[in-house]
């Protein structure tokens, strides 16, 4: 298992607790993070000079906090405040863990 997948699986196991018996898709974090790639680059590696934020290797806690600030509206944005509202806390955790693991 790749490190990113392992982390994602652990994160998910921790989150879902008793629900873990449902055998969640081990690729959920990867799949969710891939929805960000259109703007933020494959695996969070944005095209240099494109003006888009590269998420790869960013500290997980920092990413989670930022995402939540977008969602609550504290952090000003053109579009992220609207997109962030489409993801649950659990999904944000998975996505942040995935990007943090991309070195």
């Amino acid at each position: 298992m790749k490190p990113a997948h392992l982390i994602a699986a652990l994160a998910l196991a921790a989150l879902t607790g008793s629900a873990a018996a449902q055998a969640p898709d081990p690729h959920l974090a990867r799949n969710l993070a891939a929805t960000c790639a259109n703007c933020h680059g494959t695996n969070g590696r944005a095209v240099p000079g494109s003006g888009m934020e590269a998420l790869a290797g960013t500290d997980k806690a920092k990413l989670v906090e930022k995402f939540r600030e977008y969602r609550s509206g504290i952090r000003p944005a053109t579009v992220m405040h609207q997109i962030a509202k489409g993801y649950s806390d659990e999904q944000i955790e998975l996505i942040a863990a995935y990007f943090a693991a991309q070195k």
């Binding site: 703007c39 680059g41 494959t42 095209v47 494109s50 003006g51 888009m52 053109t78 579009v79 962030a84």
Partner: peptide, 28 residues
């Protein structure tokens, strides 16, 4: 529900974002 939406108003920042989006999705 409650997610998504449109711009508050047209702006140059999103003009730059549109081109940045294109570069990244083409690369993706």
């Amino acid at each position: 529900q409650g997610a998504g939406g449109v711009s508050a108003a047209r702006n140059e920042l999103e003009g730059k974002a549109a081109l940045g989006w294109a570069q990244n999705i083409w690369a993706d």
